[in-house]
Simulated scan of single mutants.
Amino acid sequence: MVAKDGQTPRERYRAQVRAEIKEHAWEQIAASGAPGMSLNAIAKRMGMSGPALYRYFAGRDELITELIRDAYGSLADAFRAAAASGADLRGLGSALRAWALADPQRYFLVYGTPVPGYHAPDDVTAIAREIMTTLLDAARPAEGPTDGPAEGPDGADPLESHLAQHRQWAAGHPADPAALRRALSFWARLHGVLSLELAGHFTGMGFDPAVLYDAELDRLAHAVP
C-alpha cells in the first residue's frame, strides 16, 4: 500500500526512525561535539541494538554526512529565499546570522572545527558551492560611503591581485577579483563575529554582539571593491 505522499508504510517508518536517530545525534553533538557522537549510545537511548541501528545508517560517517547535508541545505534554502526576495549583501548577512542563532550546534558542525578524518561527498560540496555562488552573485559595488581596500606600491590591491590567480574556491564563478575580495571579506569577517558570539567569547564584555555584527555588515555592504 502506498500513501498519498508516495511512501509505503515501511518507507515512512524508516524515515521516522532515521529522523529520530538524527535528533539524538544532535543532542550528543550539543553535549560533547561531533567527535563525541556514538551510534551505540544512540541505539541504547532508543532501545535498539547496535546492529539494528546500522540498518538505518551504515556508520558514523554516514550519519555525520546526513547532518552536514541537512545543515548546509538549510543555509542554502535561507540564502535562496533571501536572494529570491531581492536581498543584497546586507540581506544575505542578516539571513546568515538568523540561521546561525537559530541552531548554534548546526552552525558549528559546518563552520567550526572540522570533524577529524571526515571528507564531505560531492553532493555536500555542491551545496556549499551553491551558498558561495549566491554570495558571489550579491558581491557587487554598493552606493554610499566606502571602506575601500589599501593599495600596494603599484596601485593595485594586493588581495585582489592574489585572488585573481587563486580563485579555485569560487568554483568557476565569473566574478572579477574585486567581487571575489568582497565576498571573501564578507565570509571571513561575519563568520569571525558569529563564531566568537556563539562560542560565548563576548560574554561579560558589556556590549551587544548584534550591534558589532551589524556594524561589520554595514561596512561590507557599503564598501566598493
Rank of each mutant, 00 (worst) to 15 (best):
D122K: 15
D123I: 10
V124A: 04
T125G: 07
T125D: 11
T125A: 06
T125I: 07
T125N: 13
T125V: 06
A126I: 06
I127M: 00
A128P: 07
E130T: 15
I131P: 07
I131K: 03
I131W: 04
I131L: 09
I131E: 14
T133G: 11
L135E: 08
L135R: 10
L135P: 04
L136R: 05
L136I: 09
A138E: 06
R140Y: 00
R140P: 03
P141H: 03
P141E: 07
A142R: 15
A142I: 13
A142E: 10
E143P: 06
E143M: 02
E143S: 11
E143Q: 09
G144E: 01
P145E: 06
P145H: 01
P145N: 08
P145W: 02
P145L: 07
T146H: 13
D147M: 11
G148H: 15
P149F: 04
P149I: 02
P149Y: 09
A150P: 14
E151H: 08
G152C: 14
P153S: 02
P153K: 05
G155N: 03
G155K: 04
G155M: 00
A156E: 12
A156T: 08
P158T: 01
P158A: 03
L159V: 06
L159C: 05
L159Y: 11
E160W: 03
S161Q: 08
S161T: 15
S161H: 04
H162F: 12
H162V: 07
H162P: 09
L163Y: 09
L163R: 04
A164M: 08
R167W: 14
Q168T: 14
W169Q: 03
A170G: 06
A171R: 00
G172C: 05
G172Q: 09
H173G: 07
H173F: 09
P174A: 05
P177N: 07
P177C: 05
P177Q: 10
P177D: 11
A179Q: 07
R181L: 02
R182F: 01
A183H: 07
A183T: 06
L184E: 13
S185P: 00
S185L: 03
S185N: 12
F186A: 06
A188T: 15
R189Y: 12
R189F: 15
L190N: 05
H191V: 04
G192P: 04
V193M: 11
L194E: 00
L194S: 01
S195L: 07
L196K: 01
L196Y: 00
E197M: 11
E197F: 02
E197V: 07
L198C: 01
L198K: 03
L198H: 09
A199D: 10
H201Y: 04
H201D: 13
H201F: 12
H201I: 02
H201A: 11
F202A: 06
T203V: 11
T203D: 14
G204W: 02
G204P: 13
G204Q: 00
M205G: 04
M205F: 13
M205P: 10
G206Y: 05
F207V: 10
F207H: 11
A210W: 09
A210T: 06
V211Y: 03
L212R: 07
Y213D: 10
D214R: 14
D214G: 10
D214S: 14
A215T: 08
A215N: 08
A215W: 10
A215Q: 10
E216G: 00
E216R: 05
E216Y: 10
L217V: 01
D218V: 08
D218Q: 11
D218P: 03
D218S: 12
